[in-house]
């Protein structure tokens, strides 16, 4: 029992750290398209680790079913909204800063 608690704490703390890393990332990266990748961190692994940790805390109950539903919803909706943003920016004429030097 205590093992599950410790594992869930590790998951939640890792998720929190990843969230802060993503938050720093959207200030660190230079243009819109690269910031999308930083937000990708907070949308995928950070949210997943948080929700898995919370499911471990609640155990088998209605709450964990709902947490799993949030997980599924985020899993399907976050790439869709990322793609919608990138697509709208691209069609709106926003040019990415590309790295052209070598290669």
């Amino acid at each position: 029992m205590i093992l599950v608690e410790i594992i869930s704490w590790i998951f939640i703390i890792a998720g929190a750290l990843l969230g802060v890393a993503g938050g720093i990332g959207i200030h660190r990266f230079p243009d819109f398209y690269s910031r999308l990748h930083a937000v990708g961190i907070t949308d995928t692994l950070c949210a997943s680790l948080f929700l898995i940790g919370l499911v471990m805390q609640t155990g088998m109950s209605i709450a964990s079913i709902k947490l799993c539903l949030i997980f599924i919803l985020m899993f399907f909706s976050s790439p869709t909204s990322s793609h919608a943003l990138a697509d709208a920016a691209f069609l709106g004429g926003l040019k990415p800063q590309l790295d052209k030097d070598d290669d």
């Binding site: 990748h37 990708g40 692994l45 899993f75 990322s82 990138a86 069609l91």
Partner: peptide, 16 residues
């Protein structure tokens, strides 16, 4: 496929 590309951070599908 496009959604999987977007889901992995580091690559985003922009147009399809």
């Amino acid at each position: 496929y496009a959604n999987a590309i977007t889901l992995t951070p580091g690559t985003v599908s922009v147009n399809l």
